[in-house]
Design a protein around this nucleic acid. Structure first.
Lengths: 166, 166
DNA sequence: TGACAAAGTTAGGCAAGACTAACTATATTA
DNA sequence: TAATATAGTTAGTCTTGCCTAACTTTGTCA
């Protein structure tokens, strides 16, 4: 809430920002070509996005030069990367979702959830891991519960409470 | 997984479908004007969307007539509405998020999460409510834990593990 | 150092999804 | 039933975000 500058940014621009942030962390340099590759987008699209990010004061961009983020850009990107990480951990460690599914979902959901909910989610992850230190492995309990539930309802077409099909 | 026909549908079209579904449930009729109002969009945009939904076999649309959903359309819309509901309940009852914030977040996240994760989430909600029947009110425990955590970290600018602000 | 490959940019186009303004059809009611 | 208000549509425009193809700049290596 206090530090969020990611307002006004489209999901697409957030993706570019995050990609630059990640590439910079990994290989210390963000090349246009690698941004394109990591987002599965053409190099021309990257050029376009960089111009917008520069104009918004988030990236230092000069044609034919390496890209870096401004302080604001880095802060914003870090927020987004943080959302991504928290969602991923929640999906994998709490819900027990397959890593690749979790990764994909985090990519999309990171643009949909505000920092308030993300903070709560982080807290919840800590709550769960705290519980396991106290001898009650909640994540594991849930997995067992989940398996039972899934097998219970797998025969039926519908589940009473939630579905309004047909 | 089995019943999901919502592939190929943009977030925008999913919103239209859901709005029609909800209006039909509430007032038995979905008028163009009301769809426009509920999505905060112009009437002209609704007309455009209805043509696309018809063409995709999801809505029965004739100019100047009331709109209804086809069976496929209704099933798809029900899936979306279900996602919305599950997310909303999770945000409010498990995470303890304010209802209006939860509502807004559910609106966006419903387009980002696949049915696998949603199923897990539903299971988790049941796990939590199951726990309270067994004398351990997990939601409540979490709220207390959360309050402690929030107040702990509120003094600091940063939190070690997750934040990379500034 | 000059030729060639790789990286980056520009130009032009397209689709989705929204808007406004003007028009048409339907409903209401005097 | 004719006038008018309301609902819905059409036409035209704009923005975002992507693409391909062609061009320019940079880097490499014989």
């Amino acid at each position: 809430m206090a530090t969020s500058k990611s307002d006004n940014l489209s999901a697409s621009l957030e993706d570019y920002l995050e990609a630059i942030f990640n590439l910079s962390s990994e290989s210390n340099i963000a090349r246009s070509k690698d941004i394109a590759k990591s987002l599965d987008v053409s190099r021309a699209s990257v050029t376009g996005a960089l111009r917008v990010l520069k104009q918004k004061g988030l990236a230092n961009y000069k044609p034919y030069d390496y890209v870096t983020l401004t302080d604001t850009g880095r802060a914003t990107a870090a927020e987004i990367a943080k959302k991504h990480k928290i969602l991923q951990v929640f999906f994998i460690d709490v819900l027990g979702v397959e890593p690749d599914v979790a990764q994909q979902a985090a990519c999309k959901a990171e643009h949909a959830l505000g920092s308030g909910i993300i903070a709560k989610l982080l807290c919840f992850i800590e709550f769960v891991s705290h519980s396991s230190k106290n001898g009650y492995d909640m994540a594991n309990q849930f997995q067992n519960f989940c398996k039972k539930q899934m097998s219970k309802s797998s025969g039926k077409q519908d589940r009473k409470k939630w579905s309004r099909k047909k």
